[in-house]
């Protein structure tokens, strides 16, 4: 027989399983296969009951994140050939499991909304469409561009020790996306976002472990975003402290 590989996959069906179990499957080995191909092979040819999320299989829709041998990975961008021995596949850590490899996204969606991830303009300062685009130089674009690359894949949450310990933490991607708008030259809504970002559940909980940036498949560098937000908020703090005093003189 041609070369094969073994995948040991986390199974949990809430209606029938009181606890999760692991099930091992043997799949053919192809050098060009990503882990997602192997999982699809299992679903198509061996066991139709395995459930997981995927769509684009080109690393951009963000739906196929799983723990692979304990490390958060996009399974459509992780190749079988880079692993030896039995590969262990689990749902991304830190989230409630719905079934098999599918975890709940509810918490993230709520957090994303809380940072107001949209352009906010001051009352009456909207530019009418007839006047064309807002001007933004390539340099101004670069300021926030990195943070726009987030595909919401949740790998950074799965890697974050703070979130694992306390899931009230806003978390890497939501903070990075808040920063994305704060740093966009078209935006004027930073004050409105501070409520979520500079709160106790926001940036201050981060102990700067940097695991989030290490696992991010899109080089968003959420840890860097959190650092920049901290620095900016500290400046705010001093401004608030100094300004009334400064005004007096």
């Amino acid at each position: 027989m041609d070369k094969t590989m073994e995948l040991e996959i986390f199974r949990y069906r809430p209606e029938q399983d009181s606890e999760p179990t692991f099930q091992t499957y043997e799949v053919p080995f192809h050098t060009e296969w990503v882990i997602l191909d192997a999982v699809n092979y299992i679903k198509d040819e061996i066991d139709g009951t395995l459930s997981y999320r995927w769509s684009c299989r080109m690393g951009v829709c963000g739906s196929c994140g799983m723990m692979v041998n304990g490390v958060p990975k996009l399974t459509c961008a992780a190749f079988l050939k880079d692993y030896t021995g039995k590969i262990r596949i689990e749902p991304l850590e830190g989230f409630p499991v719905e079934r098999d490899l599918i975890f709940s996204m509810d918490d993230f969606i709520a957090k994303l909304k809380s940072v107001k991830p949209w352009i906010i303009r001051k009352e009456g300062e909207d530019k009418p469409l007839e006047e064309g685009e807002y001007l933004q130089t390539p340099r101004q674009l670069v300021e926030y561009q990195q943070y726009t690359m987030c595909i919401n894949c949740m790998l950074c949450y799965a890697a974050c020790p703070v979130y694992a310990h306390d899931n009230t933490f806003l978390g890497p991607a939501a903070i990075a996306l808040g920063q994305r708008y704060n740093m966009d030259s078209r935006d004027q809504g930073r004050d409105q976002r501070q409520e979520a970002i500079a709160s106790h559940e926001g940036i201050w909980q981060c102990t700067f472990v940097g695991e989030c940036s290490a696992v991010c498949p899109k080089d968003v560098d959420p840890a860097g975003a959190i650092q920049r937000a901290k620095v900016a908020s500290t400046i705010d703090y001093f401004k608030e402290l100094l300004l009334p005093w400064g005004k007096k003189s």
Binding site: W118, E133, Q136, T137, P138, L141
Partner: peptide
Amino acid sequence: MIQLEHWGCPWSREPDGTV
């Protein structure tokens, strides 16, 4: 397309800031 620009789409730019 301009509307989408106003909604924050990060369009690539010319040096003068136009799309």
